[in-house]
Amino acid sequence: MIGIRLKFTKGSEVKYISHLDLMRVFQRALRRASIPISYSSGFNPHQEISFAAPLSLGVTSNAEYVDLKLTEPMDVREIRRRLNNSLPEGIRILAGIEMGGNHKSAMSVVSHSRYSIEIYIENLSYCELKSKIEAFTAQKDIRIMKKQPKKGFELKETDIKPLIVSMKLAGSKEGKHTIDCLLLSGSRGNLKPELLMEAFKEFTGYDIQKIKINREQVYAEKNGKLVDLLEYEGFQA
């Protein structure tokens, strides 16, 4: 069995489709592109594909990852070319690698995500917002009420401070501000950027409009360093 990892975008055109929808999009694109995808055995065989880290509805990304299992070898560049002809607008395969037999799944190695968050706040200067962000992140803890999907969406108080690695104001222009943040992602701790902004909204009382979130990068930890998921398993093709 051949393992392939692909890095792709989820652009504005497809930001409203859910994780499950995205799965279907890939399943059908793989068929249209005649990629020799492998099927699981069992009563209802399904294609062997899995994604790294789900995105919330409305969030775009420059760095999504999918792992595929193929039944026969195919050049990664050929896979990329074929899929890009078969995927809807907004999803573009950027790069990919063929992985060795013993690789870990993308989902299991994800540790961090970097987001760029664009917001509108009227009449607020760069310096003002910058110091507010610094005050926000300097708190001892940042407690929010988090919904627990597995417990009937019961609310539970959580401290998100340990999940924020960094949060910085990257720039301001005519009421539009861009915030960069690095957050924990994956099974060992996960913070959705929308939740971070909710906490920030509550802390500041700002009237924040038109929040646009883009995932810039997804990382895995390798030898104490944060690396692209493609580098984690080898070299980019």
Partner: peptide, 20 residues
């Protein structure tokens, strides 16, 4: 419509219009 309205509704996928 795309950025504001669709971000407020339950199933925005119904109104995208760029399906394959």
């Amino acid at each position: 419509i795309y950025e504001e309205l669709l971000s407020k509704v339950e199933k925005p996928g119904r109104y995208i219009g760029t399906e394959w």
